[in-house]
Structures are given as structure tokens and as C-alpha cells.
Simulated assay, not measured.
Amino acid sequence: MTVYSKIIGTGSYLPARRVTNHDLAAQLAAKGIETSDEWIVTRSGISARHYAEPGQNASDLAVEAARKALDMAGKSPADIDLVIVASSTPDFLGSFPSTACIVQKKLGMTGGAAFDVQAVCSGFVYAVSVADAFIKSGAHKNVLVIGAEVFSRILDFADRTTCVLFGDGAGAVVMTASSEPGILATKLHADGSHADILSVPGNLADGALAGSGYLYMDGQAVFKLAVKVLEEVATEALAAAQMQPSDIDWLIPHQANIRIMKGTAKKLKLPEEKMVVTVDQHGNTSAASIPLALDQAVRDGRVKPGQNVLMEGVGGGFTWGAILARM
């Protein structure tokens, strides 16, 4: 019997603190930095975002999303034999122990495997692709995949071109071995020659931070590259599944910028009505953005069992990828 991997549960979590563009503009004005709701919305489509409290870490957000996904899937933590967390803002400096291990502990799990995946905003796509391969190989049966970020910790609030774009949150899926097709195709790419256009250019030296711990982004360069590669990788995933854009019921792109998202839909000749949009309320939550949007669309009834969903992301590295899934 052919073994497939299938998404059987979704979950998401946003920190309680909601920050509107007006809130953020007032905060920046106190520092002598001018911005406005109109300026932010026009350039990004973002109206609000959520910020974690000082005591909340990526693992805390991840656990909340994971519990909801497990509940929908009808699984307990004991049923999970692999935890994969995609995050660029892990709990610990140096990235160990992994945030996945911390999540495993907080969920009361003692068996199975756990590790992190780092591909920035493409992280969830990378993590699902890894889980898909593990399940199809027979190595694991039930996998918890989470994207969790606290990007507010790495934002320079003196730089209005980046600080207005990002937010915190987590999204999760439970994937399981199935006799029915679920993940139909995955495609991953990276090009390290573009590493400098989106990064946090700091490192550890003698136990202290050397360089900057703030996010840096060349917005124009990221925009141009993102629209190009997202169309290409979507086309690759469709070809691998022997499908056409017309077979897609829903497009769930990385929620970074509404202009990039609309540009991708246009290139794929998909009506905007088929695209799930949450960037207006969540901002760019990096590796959490796709599972957050997926969970919202599943829970509000838009995404239904049997429908084909194309999920794609692009992030620092430069990394990008796409997943074609039958729900």
C-alpha cells in the first residue's frame, strides 16, 4: 500500500496584545519617527499585528497553536512521534536546546524526536516538506509541525521601513500517515548569494552579541525576487502533481505584503477571491504566517475537505518553496 502524508488538524495562536497602525504610529511619533495608517496600509496592506508579552517565548505561542491542532486532529501529545518547529526567533540564543524540544517538554511528551528548521519565512513550507518525507518513508507516523515567531524582539523601532511590517504568532498542523493522498507535491529552493538582502547581521563572540541583533531588509530587492520565485515554484509544484492553476481551490501564500501576494495570484491567473489573506490583521509573522492563515480558513469554513490548497513561502537565505495539499 502506498503511504501518503495528510494534514488532519490545524491550530493557531496570536498573543493578546493587538497593535494597530494608529497605535504604532503614536509609539513611533514619541521617538520623532513619522508614519501613519495610510502609509503602512498603502505599502503593505497591514492594519494591525500582535506582540508577545515580555515573558512569552516562541515555544509558548507554539504550544497554544499545537494544542488546538491536536484537538482538531483527535490526537493526544502521546500520539506524536516527531515535532518540527520552524522559527527564526527561538527561545534560546544559539538555538539550543531547540524550541521543538522545549515544546515537547511543555506538552508533556517524552518520546519521539524533535528538532527545529530554520528557513525564515519559508520555514513552515520546509518543515512540512521534511515531515512529508519522514511519513512517506515510514520513519514517523504522526508529526506535529509548528511555525512560531516573536519577531517583535528583533525589530528596530527606529526603522519605520521594517518595524511596521512584522508581528508575533504561531500556527500548527498535525500530519499523519494515510492511504489517501494529502501532500501532493513539495518543492524547495535556496540561493545563498542573496543572503544579504534579508538578515539579522549579528553573531555571538565571547558570549556577547557582535554586530546587530535587529532585522535588516532591502525591501525593493526582496519584493522583486519574491514575486519572481513564488510564481516559478508554484508552477513547479503544480507540474509535479500534474495539475493546472485552475485545479487550485485556495492559494495561501506567505503573508508578507499584499502587493507581493496579489502579484503572485495574478501571475498564476488565479482570482483574488481564491487567495486567503490575513496579513491585514496579523502582519508578517514569518514562519507562522502560512499555518495561521490556513487555520483561519479551515475554521471559518472556506477550506473544506477534499479541496486543493497551494501554500508557498519566501524568506531570508534566500529560501523559497511550495506545497500542494489536498485537505
Rank of each mutant, 00 (worst) to 15 (best):
K6L: 08
P15G: 00
A16H: 10
R17C: 03
N21L: 12
L24G: 13
L24M: 15
A25W: 08
A26Q: 15
Q27M: 14
A29F: 11
A29D: 14
G32Y: 06
E34C: 05
D37L: 12
W39S: 02
W39F: 11
I40P: 10
V41K: 03
V41I: 15
R49N: 09
A52K: 06
E53H: 11
E53Q: 13
P54M: 11
Q56W: 11
D60A: 04
V63N: 04
A65P: 15
A65D: 08
A66K: 06
A66D: 04
L70S: 05
L70E: 03
D79N: 12
I80P: 07
I80R: 04
I80Y: 01
D81H: 10
V83K: 03
V85D: 11
S87I: 07
S87N: 02
T89L: 03
G94F: 00
S95N: 03
F96G: 03
F96A: 00
A100E: 10
C101G: 04
I102T: 10
V103T: 09
Q104Y: 03
M109Y: 04
T110M: 05
F115Q: 11
V117H: 01
Q118K: 09
S122T: 15
G123N: 08
S129V: 15
D132H: 14
D132T: 06
D132F: 13
D132C: 12
I135M: 08
N142I: 09
E149A: 05
F151Y: 12
F157H: 15
T162V: 15
C163H: 11
G169S: 08
A172Q: 05
V174E: 06
S179T: 15
A185V: 15
T186R: 06
H189Y: 13
D191S: 07
G192E: 00
D196Q: 05
A208T: 02
A210L: 13
A210S: 12
G211T: 01
G213W: 04
Y216K: 15
D218I: 13
F223D: 05
K224S: 12
K224G: 13
K228P: 10
V229I: 14
E232C: 13
V233Q: 04
A234L: 05
T235S: 06
L238F: 04
A239I: 14
A240N: 10
A240P: 13
D247M: 06
D249V: 09
L251C: 08
H254P: 14
H254V: 07
T264G: 00
L268V: 05
L268W: 01
E273N: 02
E273Y: 03
V279D: 01
H282A: 01
A288Q: 02
I290L: 08
A293I: 11
A297N: 08
G301Y: 11
N308L: 09
E312K: 12
T319R: 07
T319V: 12
G321F: 01
I323N: 08
M327D: 01
